[in-house]
C-alpha cells in the first residue's frame, strides 16, 4: 500500500545548470522594472514565464520525479496561452 518515491540525487553539473538558468531568468524582471511601455512589458513577462516553466521541467527531469516535470509542462502551456490573451486584449484597445 505504501509507495516510496525514488528521488535521484543531483550531480554537480546539474546544480550548475539549474542555478545558471535561474540567474538568466532574473534578467526579464530587471527589464520589466526599467521599461514603461505595456507591449514591451508583456513581451518580457511572457519570456520570464517561459523560463520559469522550463526550469521546473528541467529540475523535475533531473530529479527523476515525473510529476514535477508534468506540472512544468502544464505551466508552459497555460501561462503562454494567458500571455497570448493579454496581448490580444492590448491589440484590441
Amino acid at each position: 500500500m505504501t509507495e516510496t518515491i525514488k528521488v535521484d540525487h543531483l550531480e554537480g553539473i546539474q546544480y550548475i545548470i539549474i542555478y545558471l538558468m535561474l540567474l538568466v531568468s532574473l534578467i526579464p524582471v530587471i527589464a520589466i522594472s526599467r521599461s514603461k511601455e505595456t507591449t514591451e512589458r508583456i513581451a518580457y513577462a511572457s519570456s520570464f514565464g517561459n523560463k520559469l516553466a522550463l526550469i521546473i521541467l528541467v529540475s523535475g527531469v533531473f530529479r527523476g520525479d515525473w510529476m514535477i516535470a508534468c506540472i512544468g509542462a502544464f505551466i508552459l502551456i497555460v501561462g503562454d496561452a494567458g500571455m497570448l490573451i493579454l496581448s490580444l486584449l492590448e491589440m484590441r484597445i
Partner: peptide, 9 residues
C-alpha cells in the same frame, strides 16, 4: 504560442 505572440506584439 511564442510565434503567435511575437506576431501580435
Amino acid at each position: 504560442w511564442n510565434t503567435i505572440s511575437s506576431y501580435i506584439l
